[in-house]
């Protein structure tokens, strides 16, 4: 009977301690929070798109969080890795908060070479894999979480294009033509309005003044370096030699605008022909 009482006492104490520990662990884990912050940074470096995503981990529990490792991988449907990023946070002490950055680098050329862009056009799925592991409660608990998300490129691309088209607008004003003794000066007011958050590396506007036969009488060019959100007023001035126009026995009848932008090695072009004769008639 004494033996039972001794074992009973030991068992009761051990059970209470164990339950107290488990409840404290679960309660502490309840007071750990994490999430993404809004200050996303996207930069273009040497042809790479670098995305920096800030996130926070708030540890209001009783125990330290140790050996935190986060791994992020983007792959195509065929199991090919397109980009990956790993971050090791070390330890977050009890009662503290930490802000860290998850950096992801994408190389559009590599994506093209790996056929990712082709697959994107074929509407094949993109695999997004995220893994996180940590030790908790005196390293007695190890948590490993893994998330696999499959995204459809068409829905993603449609959303991105829609947002870009909304963010970007070019307004061309009425051109003014001035004559002096030697030259003919054409002034074309251009207003570029960009409201998006996506930084554009270079933007080039080129203007060509042509006669009715398509002969180039003069050119003007304007280049925007590292375009930031906001409205930019930029008149393009074209100066042509009067004699040249006289030799052609004609006047400027057409103005062609070339719009060219460079996004991490990719060039997008847009060409617009403006007929001055049609404008005069209207």
């Amino acid at each position: 009977m004494k033996r039972i009482k001794t074992i009973g006492l030991v068992t009761t104490c051990a059970t209470l301690l164990l339950l107290a520990f488990i409840i404290s662990v679960v309660y502490s884990a309840q007071n750990v929070s994490f999430g993404l912050l809004e200050d996303f940074e996207i930069s273009w470096r040497e042809g790479n798109v670098a995305i920096s995503m800030p996130f926070y981990v708030k540890n209001r529990g009783f125990y330290d969080i140790e050996d935190i490792d986060i791994f992020f991988q983007l792959g195509d449907g065929g199991g090919q890795t397109l980009t990956e990023s790993a971050i090791s946070l070390g330890a977050i002490r009890a009662g503290s908060k930490r802000i860290e950055y998850l950096n992801v680098t994408l190389n559009p050329i590599t994506l093209l070479l790996k056929g990712f862009l082709y697959e994107l056009l074929q509407n094949k799925p993109i695999e997004l894999k995220a893994k996180a592991s940590l030790n908790y409660a005196l390293s007695w608990l190890r948590l490993e979480a893994e998330a696999n998300i499959t995204l459809t490129p068409s829905s993603l691309a449609k959303g991105l294009l829609r947002s870009l088209a909304k963010d970007f607008s070019i307004n061309v004003g009425n051109p003014t033509i001035k004559f002096n003794d030697t030259d003919v000066a054409v002034n074309l007011p251009v207003s570029l309005n960009y409201t998006g958050w996506f930084p554009i590396q270079t933007l080039q506007l080129k203007l060509e003044a042509k006669n009715s036969t398509g002969f180039i009488l003069g050119t003007g060019e304007i280049i925007f370096d590292k375009l930031k959100p906001g409205q930019i007023e930029a008149p393009i001035n074209i100066t042509c030699n009067k004699e040249l126009i006289a030799l052609q026995f004609t006047h400027i009848s057409n103005i062609t605008i070339y719009f060219k932008t460079n996004l991490a090695g990719f060039t997008f072009e847009w060409i617009e022909d403006i007929s001055l004769n049609a404008m005069k008639q209207s």
Binding site: W140, L141, R142, L143, E144, A145, E146, A147, N148, I149
Partner: peptide
Amino acid sequence: SSVSVVLKF
């Protein structure tokens, strides 16, 4: 559906 969690103790 998309998240798998392993707890080791």
